[in-house]
Design a protein around this nucleic acid. Structure first.
Lengths: 119, 119
DNA sequence: CATATACTGAACCATATGGTTCAGTATCAA
DNA sequence: TTGATACTGAACCATATGGTTCAGTATATG
């Protein structure tokens, strides 16, 4: 599997491809939470939740800190700026392509009008 | 695996989590291409490329049409608006959280200044 | 017709993912 | 000290992913 220099984008998008993980990010956007709180909210074993947090932590989207028994999860230092940037660029390409298509359609319509003018 | 109503977002982000697939989208943003052209560009078997196209097609990011032997791939009807929307919302949450943090930091600095004023 | 091209599908493979349970360890509270 | 709580790690499981090869089928082209 060839991996040029894009592994971080890969990881960001992969992290977001799971509904539970997106839910966790939204939840942490409102307030910090412990692993067990999150596990409760998303009806999942502690271990399962910890894995999700692990994924989010590795991409830098979540930061955690342990105090005593409880590990508290916060929104992490790394935002999704890169991912958002990529998306924006794609959307631009997409719109360009479709504007082009619009032009072609318009042109076809113009030609058709010339070919067969309304009587 | 609980799947509420978010399967399309899941699929969009999953589609983008692969560098080859992002490359294909960029490539198609410049011009349409056949499967074998893409396979050549990304140094991959025809079959492998067809699988990627299948993934992109299922999420609606790419549309294909077969004429004779060759199947031509175009940017699809479904843009990434939903995904972009989600990202934007997350980024807002994230900035809110960090502004809040900024306020706390400021407050701490203010208190510290009061506690121990510069001599 | 014969042959090359372009795709398609099935089967296979290694590894990753999203979960679980079970058995710890560490810490807080009575 | 004795529990209860909160996490952690290992092992397991089913399914998905990203590739491959091999054997077709369909379509152009000489």
């Amino acid at each position: 599997m060839v991996q040029y220099q894009s592994s971080h984008l890969d990881a960001s998008f992969a992290a977001l491809s799971d509904a539970t993980r997106r839910g966790i990010l939204e939840r942490l956007g409102r307030a910090d939470a412990s692993i067990s709180e999150l596990a409760g909210t998303f009806r999942m074993s502690l271990t399962g939740m910890k894995k999700h947090i692990g994924v989010l932590e590795q991409t830098g989207l979540v930061r955690t800190e342990k105090a005593g028994r409880v590990r508290t999860c916060t929104l992490g230092p790394r935002s999704l700026d890169e991912a958002a940037e990529w998306l924006e660029r794609y959307r631009q390409l997409w719109h360009e392509r479709f504007n082009e298509l619009d032009k072609i359609v318009e042109e076809l319509q113009r030609v058709r009008r010339v070919d067969a003018p309304t009587p």
